[in-house]
């Protein structure tokens, strides 16, 4: 039996990776893929775009799945546990855990008492943890995690804001998939109105 997969020279948006046919036909160019994801997140932002509420996109599996794929790819194999916090933490933690197979917990860095710090799941001394969040709005998180005697291997946020620049520059473990400015640009002109 002969098996051949070819790609027509025309009629395809510049979206598929060249040379990917033999092993993985229909693999999109990674940059294109990421830009489309940014567009879709921006499109799905609720009317109060400035509030960055995540309801618009976390409730759509077509976007949430890709966000989990994107963030899951940055979680090192050494991580024992995922910690999600902040906006839509329960959803994001679940999605990235399903994507990677790594157990997760949900933390509230603003909890008044230590007993309230963990909202879902457990966390144990000595664990290597990967933090995932929509934003980077918890500057003392690393400190309180150090108090739990865990090792933070990475902290991936989905969207950074201009105010997060110092935080991003100060710690190489911290990174964001998209910048606020990039998301706004992706939302097209007019996306800021209403």
């Amino acid at each position: 039996m002969n098996a051949v997969v070819r790609r027509s020279a025309t009629a395809i948006d510049a979206a598929l990776s060249p040379g990917a046919l033999a092993s993985g036909a229909f693999v999109q160019n990674p940059e294109f893929w990421k830009q489309e994801l940014a567009n879709d997140i921006a499109a799905a932002l609720p009317l109060q775009a400035a509030a960055h509420r995540s309801d618009g996109w976390v409730t759509r599996p077509a976007i949430l799945r890709r966000v989990a794929t994107l963030m899951g790819a940055s979680i090192p194999a050494t991580a024992d546990r995922i910690i999600a916090f902040g906006d839509a933490a329960q959803i994001l933690g679940t999605a990235v855990a399903l994507e990677t197979g790594i157990p997760f917990c949900v933390a509230n860095p603003r909890a008044a008492t230590e007993a309230e710090f963990l909202q879902t799941g457990t966390l144990h001394a000595g664990e290597r943890v990967a933090v995932v969040s929509v934003h980077l709005d918890a500057p003392d998180l690393l400190e309180s995690l150090a108090g739990h005697d865990v090792v933070v291997v990475v902290w991936r946020a989905l969207i950074s804001r201009p105010a997060d620049a110092t935080m991003l520059a100060a710690d190489s473990r911290i990174a964001a998939e998209f910048s606020d400015a990039g998301m706004v640009a992706a939302a097209h002109e007019g996306g800021d109105a209403a």
Binding site: L16, A43, A44
Partner: peptide, 18 residues
């Protein structure tokens, strides 16, 4: 024998919530 030709590929578009 099998020969497969990709003839089209377009992404879905999420229309703005706004």
């Amino acid at each position: 024998d099998i020969d497969i030709q990709i003839i089209g590929d377009t992404s879905p578009a999420i229309l703005p919530t706004r």
